[in-house]
Design a protein around this nucleic acid. Structure first.
Lengths: 144, 144
DNA sequence: TTCATATACATGCATTTGCATGCATATGGT
DNA sequence: ACCATATGCATGCAAATGCATGTATATGAA
């Protein structure tokens, strides 16, 4: 009931507001550019980083904080678009490797400037470089 | 392409991660307690603050950053649960006033300690009081 | 080896969301 | 008063999501 605890709620409320605003802007910009939703970008980025080795669905789940069934079906859609391929996993008969395709890399490359543009514009308008850096530091502590 | 811009993306990524984690925790806690989702709380809080005067749906839309159809249907559900009533608007034939009921107030009161508990625990574990206050200040600048 | 349990992933079904559109009243110009 | 346009809210339909459960392989203990 003291001051610091009240700040806790304030932090959460602001996180939720910031998240909502920024996400809306990004999704709208992607949509207007005829591109895929942000979730696709996240997956493609991780797969791109993983190179030809690929990632297991459960790894994606952990990295992106998604639910198991969420990954399963998101991957379905991205696969149908031809942006990734599912390959049976050599050392685990239950599993599979997700590997980005050429077209997937292309798609991610097209999304990046739109995505980045919105973020920089949104944040740049509101915060100085120092404030942005400070904010990043504090948020990292929070999500560690 | 400079350092400050990279922080911008970092800030966004951390906001998204923090949001995801915290929201999951809150929703899970509410669910386990047999309570309604967080969206219901937000609506009930605003209506509670508005007292017997109530709020127009479009005001809720602005306050909570929801879409028009989102409000329309969320209000449908909350109304069906008996937590609010829709009243034709006196000075605008198109509109209506949303007014919280006794049961709605009760429902919000039950949700609050669960909600608050998760937030305080989640944030308290990771940040000092000073850091929490600083974070609140920076985020407020961002969402202003 | 055999069995119990855990892990990886998929899926049926209900609920929620997004998008586009519809309907009714309000408002401002003529 | 009349019309064009704007505002407030609802809703049909398709897509996405949540939850529970199913199937198959893996792992470890006996």
């Amino acid at each position: 009931m003291n001051t610091s605890e009240d700040h806790g709620i304030a932090v959460w409320v602001q996180i939720a507001r910031a998240h909502s605003r920024i996400l809306n802007q990004v999704e709208q910009a992607l949509r207007q550019a005829g591109l895929k939703p942000l979730g696709w970008y996240d997956v493609l980025l991780e797969l791109d980083r993983a190179e030809e080795v690929g990632l297991r669905p459960y790894e994606l789940e952990e990295k992106l904080l998604l639910r198991q069934y969420g990954v399963s079906r998101l991957v379905d859609r991205i696969e149908k678009a031809g942006y990734l391929k599912r390959v049976a996993c050599a050392d685990d008969g239950r599993g599979q490797k997700l590997i980005i395709t050429k077209r997937g890399k292309l798609a991610r490359q097209k999304m990046w400037p739109v995505y980045r543009g919105v973020i920089e514009e949104t944040l740049g308008r509101k915060l100085s470089n120092t404030e942005t850096a400070d904010l990043a530091t504090l948020l990292e502590k929070l999500t560690m």
